[in-house]
Design a binder for these strands. Structure first.
Lengths: 320, 320
DNA sequence: ACTATTCTCTGACTAGGATCAGAGAATCAG
DNA sequence: CTGATTCTCTGATCCTAGTCAGAGAATAGT
């Protein structure tokens, strides 16, 4: 691991020099490239690159005075500012890409053909798995920006995939109070500060502080991070929270078009059962008994460690 | 490739922060770790880390005034200074290692068992192949330090491996003039400024500027970089230089204990032939006809691009 | 012995990366 | 509407990383 880091930084160092060879400070080049052709909110840049707001503001100012970037107000939120590349900025970005490709070539050139393909494959694997390890799953306040973003994406995807679309007004939307204990829980998965997945736990028939059963809903994984086992991690995290709340059984329903999700539920011990609600979009109802864990024995915040024994099926986009 | 760099630097960034969290500048920590428990010459540190001499001197001064490092003269060369860790420096180094391991754990923890093994494997693969691509093969002046170092290592290895050892005085040692054109050539492979392999080309019976045949000798690959195809690259580079010198055939001899080398020669089209010299250590003599390339059609400095069609046998420590 | 080279150290200097505090504008929650 | 929060920008400041030039000591080559 240590040697790996050293070797890679040596190469990345060469890459940085290539950036610097363009006569532009590294920080500016990074921001320029991160903005991309579609533009980006300043806030998103800050979280994605992990920069101080003052620092980023200064970098954007420098890029702006060079005529590469324009910064304007966002329509959605007057406080947020959106950075966009000017034509000159796009050209500069393309130039950076060209130099980047040149560095890549200089790395691949000395290798044989078979070594190149192996290197590219291994790099893709490392990237995938490091991405997976960067994803954090945490409870989220219902009013938090991430809650809106991820649930919105979830409903949009249902609308796109369901036969006949999905009408939110027909769905049993959750009140904010249902997404926090003791009524339920909202988990959001974030990658570099942006939401990339979510899942909701709803406790039903709570008596004596213990729910008779808990429902898993709104399980969603962003398309950009599918295939790295995030759906499984969310599912296991939700089950863990249900167990530590004392629920003996979890249930969920799903639509017949969500075949990957159905396969994942089956692989994780869910058995099809009779309908437990009248969700007009549901075709299948599943349930799974939970091993008794005692209430609050696991600390709620980090109960989401995924150590599934079944580790063969690597891909699991999921919805519930 | 670009995304790979970003992801890794994000993680390496976390690692850097871990270093910095120790309250010590990153540069000092890097040097501290690079010195290692066995000490290191200042010159070696400079080439390995790619630092300016003034800068490194200052860093070492800071580490010295903190009581972590002592710098003394090298016995071999009074100009060279050798840095060694004090007990406090060793402790500090161990602490850095501990923090490094903690970062590694934080990366591996969120992953499943199978994902972890895949990640570790892929990282090792990337490291191996990037190392391979970092190795540079270039002609070397016979009096250069690298020439002595690598040929010395070569003879030492022969002495260790041959039955009955190897006596340099019985070998036909090359005069410096035989290692430069037009009599021959010495190629040295370097990794981060240190020699990790070599090979010698000797032209024989030169008439009209063209050798009747060329001999490949002293083919050596350092143990630390075996298994990444460097022997093959050196062999192909030497053949390329022989071809551009107009030699129609290359010959080499080898000892029977060097089985990997013999296998490599066979795989590369060398056929066993009758003895062409009276080398007391040789058991096998090989030769290979070269495709006519015309003299000096390839630029000599970079004629070493290895694009072998046979890319199956990945390991090839080699000697000749 | 004499010269060129190598290695190291010192001094002077630059700039980019980064942090902190605070102000102003916009939005959210009640 | 009001107070709290969020987002951004400006100013001030620090420090590490890195570069350049030159001097002094040791070595290598002839």
């Amino acid at each position: 691991m240590r040697r790996f880091n050293r070797i890679v930084t040596q190469r990345v160092g060469a890459l940085d020099e290539a950036f610097l060879a363009r006569g532009r400070p590294l920080g500016q080049a990074r921001v320029l490239w991160e903005i991309g052709p579609d533009g980006a909110d300043v806030r998103a840049l800050r979280t994605r690159l992990g920069l101080d707001s003052g620092y980023l503001s200064r970098v954007l100012g420098a890029l702006g005075s060079d005529g590469l970037v324009t910064v304007g107000r966002s329509q959605l939120d007057g406080r947020v500012r959106t950075a966009r590349l000017t034509p000159a900025g796009l050209a500069e970005c393309a130039e950076l890409d060209r130099r980047n490709d040149a560095v890549a070539s200089s790395i691949l050139d000395p290798l044989e053909v078979s070594q190149r393909t192996r290197l590219v494959g291994a790099m893709a694997e490392v990237e995938r798995l490091l991405t997976a390890s960067l994803v954090r799953i945490e409870p989220c306040a219902p009013r938090h920006r991430h809650a809106h973003t991820s649930l919105d994406a979830y409903f949009s995807e249902l609308d796109a995939r369901f036969n006949g679309g999905f009408d939110r007004s027909r769905a049993n939307l959750d009140a904010p109070s249902d997404l926090v204990p003791p009524n339920g829980l909202l988990l959001v998965a974030t990658l570099a500060g942006e939401p990339v997945g979510c899942g909701v736990l709803r406790h039903h028939d709570v008596r004596g502080g213990r729910p008779a059963w808990s429902e898993i809903k709104r399980l969603w994984v962003a398309p950009s991070v599918r295939g790295i086992g995030l759906g499984r991690r969310l599912l296991i995290a939700l089950e863990g929270h249900a167990a530590s709340s004392g629920a003996p059984v979890v249930r969920l329903d799903t639509n017949r078009v969500l075949t990957e999700a159905i396969a994942m539920y089956r692989a994780h011990g869910y058995r099809e059962t009779r309908p437990f609600n009248d969700n007009p979009y549901a075709h299948h109802w599943f349930e799974k008994r939970l091993a008794a864990k005692g209430r609050r024995r696991r600390q709620p915040a980090t109960a989401a460690r995924t150590r599934s024994t079944n580790a063969t099926s690597g891909t699991a986009p999921a919805q519930a």
